[in-house]
Design a protein around this nucleic acid. Structure first.
Lengths: 161, 161
DNA sequence: CCACACTACGTGGACGTCCAGGTATCTGTC
DNA sequence: GACAGATACCTGGACGTCCACGTAGTGTGG
């Protein structure tokens, strides 16, 4: 019934034992992401938001000026700049953000959160905190363990500079 | 520099302390998936494969008859059936699998791996074992810890029956 | 034996992600 | 001050994922 356990057995069976645990780890992360993504998306649906767009909204909400260039948002959220462009297109249509010309750099576009955007962000945060983040499906100790282990992985990918 | 640490600080600062660790965990899983996905995709590129298509190929390779209905493949890989249809379209174009009518059920289509498919699957496995699974960016102990913790999460999502 | 519910698959579309390529703007150098 | 390279953004397209819907085949209760 455990598809990852089955795969690990096959790996060992074929003489790939040295890679079996790593395979299980990678596959587990993929599956965990899928599970958590689905939970978050469900919470976001009533607000006509996706997790990707929610992240953009919260980034702007927490920024000192309530606005930020596309490039900087992409760096902070660690996605390709065109993903931000895509999210902003939809957020702008929904009236949650607005594009403003950068005051000093003619190349850049500032993304600015609107009042409606802030309001929606806070409501969505309350819901996702209540329905997902407070109860991620793990005991408190294990949640911290998970964060710590993945910190190592993120470090190896250069996430800490 | 640590974007997740920054977000956690903001969460606590806004009185959402009870959800901060869960938020960090969920976000860490998302980021870890992104990192690992990118590594695997890079290894797959020389074989003209994606991780999704590789998984379909290995599933068929390990199956007793070398073939399987779409529905069953979707259940095993825990994705929507149309994702399998999509992967199979591309795998079929590449000559790695072939669609065969189900012998007894006229509704079903069997996906059958070809000799070229098996050959490609084994080469890709050797590469991904060498470049990713054997060196996931974590010590051996932590890899096992990660798998164990995520097992709990998967259990809470009903992955074990 | 036949009507009706169920099942398996495909199609079309939405969404998020990335890449390649193009345009406008900035910056540093001569 | 002009020009070459770098930078910021957008557009178009590939890919994977999911959903809603349609079509064909199965199976079952009357």
């Amino acid at each position: 019934m455990d598809t990852i356990g089955l795969a690990r057995a096959k790996w060992e069976q074929h003489g790939w034992g040295g890679a079996a645990e790593g395979m299980a780890a990678v596959t587990s992360v993929m599956r965990a992401q899928q599970i958590l993504q689905a939970r978050v998306e469900e919470v976001m649906r009533p607000f006509d938001l996706s997790f990707a767009r929610y992240e953009v909204l919260m980034l702007l909400h927490f920024s000192s000026r309530g606005s930020m260039p596309v490039k900087k948002a992409a760096q902070r959220l660690q996605v390709h700049p065109t993903s931000i462009t895509n999210s902003v297109d939809r957020l702008e249509t929904a009236g949650l953000v607005r594009r403003v010309p950068h005051p000093t750099d003619g190349r850049a576009t500032l993304i600015e959160i609107t009042d409606l955007g802030r309001e929606t962000a806070l409501k969505a945060t309350e819901a996702v905190n209540r329905d997902v983040f407070s109860q991620p499906g793990l005991s408190g100790r294990r949640v911290s363990t998970l964060v710590n282990v993945l910190e190592d992985l993120r470090r190896s990918a250069g996430d800490f500079g």
